[in-house]
Structure formats: structure tokens, C-alpha cells
């Protein structure tokens, strides 16, 4: 059974189409990242799953229950973006309140609350009113409350928003541990470096449409691309290389450098031989590694024709990798 499943999910807010037929599937035990630009519809998708927003069309289910069914939310923890906790609570009393809403027994609450707050590093302030918390402390409290009842699925909308770098690493490690314990995590984030580090699978939303979906390895896979540079003053034999079947493109932001893309089943060796045969000296040879960020930007920009930034191509890899 999938933990989260949506089929052709659509949502319009009046004239704004926030989701235009999104189908995703999250398996148990995964950390699943949902990426997309501002306004892509990430939060909308989560809100539909939790019944905060009603879908317009399509299907969505959570742990086997239709989204929106209060029962479906029983085993789910949620950290909303831009949350505003009631400030008249202390960290502890808020957790206690939420624990009661989830039907936790008093003893469990007493045991779990300090434990969870310890985990996110704010146990020392748990009896202060939330109005005295800093932004990052509130965010940590938000994470703690989403874990309190040991939910099967934890949905985090920008979990590291407002958290300092050290805290972000702690949260990353925490997510890893939660995964080991068998929880499923679903998160929205703009911090792609982090997503790359923790997520198993990601989906990229672009203006309400799912444009890519797969494992991190799928998305960052590079079809053998090399950054090649020769000694000063030497010209790269581009025409000869193209004749051999390699795609060659100058790297615009680095004069004298070229990106060489291998044809299927080929290695870089013929190019190296060509350089040696022509008496040129190789100074720079790096296999290009695409980060998730690259992949994301490539995807997002590629799917948005007509933007004037595009011909400039911030990354050399893009025009080549744009189509297969």
C-alpha cells in the first residue's frame, strides 16, 4: 500500500490552477521530496492530502484512506509552512494539547514530549510561552510536534525554514534516523542541497504540473559530460571531435573551456588521443557532476520557454542536456 497516492489531482482556486493533474506515489519508508518554484503548487498538494484544502478533481489518498477523512490524519504528523502556533501556550502545553487531539494517553504524552523537545534541542525552554521563542525555536517546536505521536507519515513543509546551519544538519540527521525507524517522510524544500542529501525520491512541480519524478540518482545522472581545457593559447580541435561523433560546446563563462559530451557507449579516450595527436597539451579534464540544483534549474528553466535568461545559459550543461 502506498503511503501517499494521488491520481490526476487537480485544484483550482477560482481562476488560478494550482495543480493540473498531478500523480505521485510515495512508498513506505521513503524520504520523498517535492520541489518546485514558488507558487508551483507544493503546499497545495500537501493541504489536499491533509484535508485543509478540497481537491477539484482526481484522487488523493493518505495511508489508504481518502484524503480529507479525519481518520486518515490519525497516523500523520504535519509541519505547515508559515505556522503560527497559539502563543498563549508553552512548548510543552502545546505538545500536550496536540497529543490529546491525537488521542495519546497521558503517560505517553508525559514521556514523549520532553523526549521530542530534547530531540530538536529546545527542551530547556519547554515551559516558556511560545511568544518568547525565536523563529528557529518555533520551527524546531513545529518539527517536534509533528513527530510527537510517532506517526507513520510525517509531512514537513519547508522543515528547515529559519533554522541555523547547525540546526539544519541536526534536522537532516534526525530525518535519517526517522527513516531508519521506518517512518515515511514527505517534504517540501527549496534547499536543494539538503534535499539531495536526505531524499530517496523527488518530484518536481512546475506551475501545477509534475515535470520530473524519480530517485536522486535518476535526476542527477549525467550522460558522460566532460569539461575540457587546453594550455593557454591552444585551440581545441572542435571540428575534429565533432567528426568523431562528440558534441562540443564552448563554456560561455570560462573562455577556452569546452564541454564535451560522449555519444552513447563511447569513452573520452578518442578525444584524448586526438589532443595528443595534434600535439596539444591537456590542462583540465573533469567529468561533469550534476547537482540536484543543476537538475532542478535545468528542468524548471527548460519547461519555461521564452524566458530571456535562457539563451545565456547559466550552466553549460543545460543546452546539451536539455533534450536527449
Amino acid at each position: 500500500m502506498a503511503v501517499i497516492e494521488t491520481r490526476e489531482l487537480r485544484k483550482s482556486y477560482g481562476r488560478i490552477e494550482a495543480l493540473k493533474g498531478v500523480s505521485i506515489r510515495v512508498e513506505p519508508g521513503q524520504i520523498y521530496g517535492l520541489l518546485g518554484q514558488n507558487g508551483a503548487g507544493k503546499t497545495t498538494l500537501i493541504k489536499i492530502l491533509l484535508g485543509i484544502v478540497r481537491k477539484t478533481e482526481g484522487d488523493a489518498s493518505l495511508l489508504g484512506h481518502a484524503a480529507g477523512d479525519p481518520y486518515a490524519r490519525k497516523r500523520v504528523g504535519y509541519l505547515p509552512e508559515d505556522h503560527a502556533f497559539p502563543v498563549y501556550h508553552t512548548g510543552y502545553s502545546l505538545m500536550d494539547f496536540y497529543g490529546q487531539l491525537y488521542g495519546m494517553a497521558r503517560d505517553d504524552r508525559r514521556r514523549m514530549i520532553p523526549e521530542m523537545l530534547e530531540l530538536v534541542g529546545i527542551a530547556g525552554r519547554m515551559h516558556s510561552k511560545i511568544r518568547t521563542y525565536s523563529k528557529g525555536m518555533k520551527q524546531r517546536l513545529g518539527i517536534a510536534q509533528s513527530l510527537l505521536h510517532a506517526p507513520d507519515l510525517i509531512i514537513l513543509d519547508e522543515p528547515t525554514d529559519g533554522v541555523d546551519p547547525l540546526g539544519r544538519r541536526e534536522i537532516r540527521e534526525l530525518m535519517g534516523r526517522l527513516k531508519e525507524k521506518g517512518h515515511t517522510l514527505f517534504l517540501n524544500s527549496h534547499l536543494l542541497g539538503e534535499v539531495e542529501l536526505v531524499c530517496d525520491r523527488v518530484a518536481i512541480l512546475q506551475q501545477g504540473t509534475l515535470v520530473r519524478e524519480g530517485t536522486i540518482a535518476d535526476l542527477t545522472r549525467q550522460a558522460g559530460r566532460y569539461d575540457v581545457g587546453l594550455a593557454d593559447g591552444q585551440a581545441f580541435p572542435a571540428d575534429a571531435a565533432v567528426k568523431l561523433g562528440f558534441a562540443v560546446a564552448p563554456l560561455p563563462d570560462r573562455p577556452g573551456r569546452f564541454e564535451v559530451t560522449l555519444p552513447a557507449g563511447q569513452t573520452i579516450d578518442p578525444v584524448l588521443r586526438l589532443v595528443a595527436e595534434q600535439g596539444l597539451s591537456l590542462r583540465h579534464l573533469v567529468e561533469k557532476k550534476q547537482s540536484l540544483e543543476d537538475a532542478f534549474l535545468a528542468t524548471v528553466e527548460g519547461a519555461e520557454p521564452g524566458v530571456d535568461r535562457r539563451p545565456k545559459g547559466r550552466r553549460g550543461a543545460r543546452p546539451v542536456g536539455g533534450d536527449d
Partner: peptide
């Protein structure tokens, strides 16, 4: 109105209660 404020209402609606 406090309950219905953005960021506050989600928290409660997301709990298993109608």
C-alpha cells in the same frame, strides 16, 4: 479569528478531528 488565521488553522484541521 485567531483560530482561522493562516498558519494556525492548518495546524488544527490537520489533526484527526472533523
Amino acid at each position: 479569528p485567531n483560530l482561522l488565521r493562516k498558519g494556525s488553522v492548518d495546524l488544527l484541521i490537520a489533526k484527526p478531528i472533523g
